[in-house]
Amino acid sequence: MKIRAKSIVKGVVRGEAIISRMAISFTGGVDPNTGIVREPGHDLEGKSIAGKILIFPIGKGSTTGSWQFYATYKRGNAPKGIINLRAEGVVAVSAVITGTPMVHQPEKDPFDYIKDGDMVTINGDEGFIEIE
């Protein structure tokens, strides 16, 4: 199925979904050396976001997150694509400087349709998400 969403960074990418219902901070929240979420009590704690299509509601925390995201990306541990319910500045610019396809404001709640491990395509050129 297809869900329309607004494009933030262009590009088309397909990958395995990892989904969180909690906001993410890339400073402190994710280890750049592994891509593993390390925030205590986070619903993705101990799981890797590397190479995945990362779906989460919104960014949070320090505005230094774009540096940590950049280091994570340079070490090959960043997500392939990002879907946010609503983009905020830190995650949006992280996607921009790394060329990571990103969409937000999906027309339907992705939590109702996507679960961990589903194959998902982000189409940032045309603005939609496709779930296999």
Partner: peptide, 26 residues
């Protein structure tokens, strides 16, 4: 991303990142 219509001038900037978050890549 945010649907901004235009750019506006600013008159003060403050940068945050230190080495622990920037790392060598930064």
């Amino acid at each position: 991303s945010y649907g901004a219509a235009r750019m506006i001038p600013i008159n003060s900037v403050h940068m945050a990142g230190n080495y622990s978050v920037m790392e060598t890549e930064g």
